[in-house]
Simulated assay, not measured.
Amino acid sequence: MSRTFVIAQGGGPTAVINQTLAGAVIAARRRHGDVRVLGAKHGIRGIAADDFIDLTAFSDGDLMHIANTPNSALGSTRDKPDDAYCGRILEGLRKAKADAFVYIGGNDTAGTLQILDRAAGGPMTFVHAPKTIDNDLAENDHTPGFISAALFVVRAFLSVDLDFRALPGIYVGIVMGRHAGFLTASAAAWRRQAADGPHLVYVPEEPFSVERLVADIHATLDRFGRCVVAMSEGVTVAGGAPLAGHLIPAHRREHDAHGNIQLSGGDLGLALQSRLKEEFPKVRARVDTFGYLPRGFNFRRGAYTIDYESWINPRGRLRRNAPAVVAVAITT
């Protein structure tokens, strides 16, 4: 009996999310010789709009090229479906005759799958393939996407620490992470001595204040003559409000579709740098916002390097769940 797998990608792209995609497609084809593999463009949007690409004829070589390309090859979305949207998605899956839907992504993607699973009320299988640079999925030690992004962060801080040894001053690198500080904490992974940067690390899980930052920088300058700081974009001040809302003027604040203050832009860095220059007028102070750079960092050395966790994880899940249909969407 022919089977159909639907596969899609959600949330922010990473350097290895396409490895998960390729691993899932190849595993499905090897386990089910007559499988039909569909790709939904831009996640659940493609399913609702009946916008698929048939990946059945893609060679393993083509899939390997996709696997080694940083981005989300199928296109992505951050849509959070309401009841009406869920109905359109489920109708799209039924129209595609999908036996299973594999969705690659992080917390929001997992939440979307849970909503669809409850709404479906039938035999269709819903499989979550974890991907998030924030590393904040429950019951995971680490997730695909985190290691490659963390490698960028740790290399960046190692390099900038050497820069500020040559020309001492204050450096702050603002790293992605609205609620989780794993990526920011990775900045200290290669520290070997107390004098190595980053000297200060601030994560969303711990209370933060600008006054504390200034005091900590003063102490670090007195001790080492320079200060390198790793800071999560999501650090919060008194009352749990994000620092961005505290420092950025109201007319400069941007918000996403869900009402959250945009944290990955450069306004927080500019506001913080201005404050540091006021507090330390005679010291060189620089603030960089890493933004999307860590998640898109292409760390591979060869054309066919495999991130084995990203590659093997979906293959194992497909073997255990043995879904009937895999659909994958790729943008043109």
Rank of each mutant, 00 (worst) to 15 (best):
V16Y: 00
N321C: 11
F280K: 05
V154D: 02
S2G: 02
D83M: 06
A119M: 13
P198M: 03
T125L: 12
A28R: 15
L162C: 06
G239M: 12
G43T: 13
Y171D: 01
S148R: 00
G11S: 07
A98C: 13
T236F: 00
V153I: 15
H65A: 14
T69V: 11
V35A: 07
G245F: 07
C227Q: 05
D222S: 07
A194D: 11
H258L: 11
F126A: 08
W190P: 00
R178S: 04
V287H: 00
M124I: 15
W311F: 13
V25S: 07
G265W: 02
F5W: 05
V201S: 03
R45K: 10
V154T: 14
R3L: 15
G105D: 00
A219L: 07
L183Q: 00
A244F: 04
V228H: 01
G10S: 14
A156E: 14
P130N: 04
G245R: 12
Q273W: 04
S209H: 13
C86P: 04
R31T: 07
D79T: 15
L183Y: 06
F126E: 01
T305N: 14
G234M: 09
V172N: 00
P198E: 03
K282E: 13
L213W: 06
G105A: 03
L137K: 01
T220C: 14
H179P: 01
Y202R: 14
S264N: 04
G316D: 07
D267A: 14
G181S: 07
H65Y: 13
R30W: 10
C86D: 02
V16P: 02
S310C: 12
V172T: 05
L270V: 11
D136F: 13
R301H: 14
L116R: 09
G269T: 12
H32M: 11
L74D: 00
R29G: 06
M176Y: 03
V325T: 12
V235C: 05
N135I: 10
F101N: 03
G234K: 08
D83W: 07
G12K: 00
D136L: 08
A48L: 06
S59C: 06
K95V: 06
V6M: 13
R253W: 08
L293E: 03
I248D: 01
I330M: 12
T14H: 00
A257P: 02
A22N: 04
G177E: 09
G87T: 10
G61E: 10
E211I: 12
R284N: 08
S76M: 02
L268E: 05
L63W: 05
A150W: 03
Y304K: 14
H246G: 03
P249T: 11
F157Y: 10
A119H: 13
H42V: 15
A8V: 09
H128R: 03
E139M: 10
D117N: 11
E206L: 12
K41E: 11
P242A: 06
H251G: 05
V325H: 12
D141G: 03
F157Q: 01
S76A: 09
T305R: 15
I89C: 07
K80I: 15
A195Y: 07
A149C: 04
L151P: 01
I66K: 01
E205M: 10
G23N: 06
L158T: 15
G145R: 02
D256K: 06
P13V: 10
A8I: 09
S209C: 15
D267L: 11
A40K: 05
